[in-house]
Amino acid sequence: MSKGEAPPPQKADGLEVNEVADGYVIYDNDREQVHYLNHTAALVLEYCNGEHTPDRIAELLQLAYDLKDPPLEEVTECLSNLRSQGLIS
């Protein structure tokens, strides 16, 4: 990571993650909020381990879904949503 670059996203603490057939239901105990993530968003969240950069997450998604290009724009938007919901830092 170069100077001034944001640290890789990391899943927030205190989340109760529950898996269903088509996504995640996440309960944020601290904020008493429930979040619903589809498969793709759930996968992005799983990649937010404090090590993967957004570029790397897009590459991993490309591999996972056998895409032609890394979906960087979509990943960036998803990360922004997850961050605004307090699910990643």
Binding site: V20, A21, G23, V25, Y36, N38
Partner: peptide
Amino acid sequence: CGKLDMVK
């Protein structure tokens, strides 16, 4: 109905 939608 999808599971996620049902939970919601």
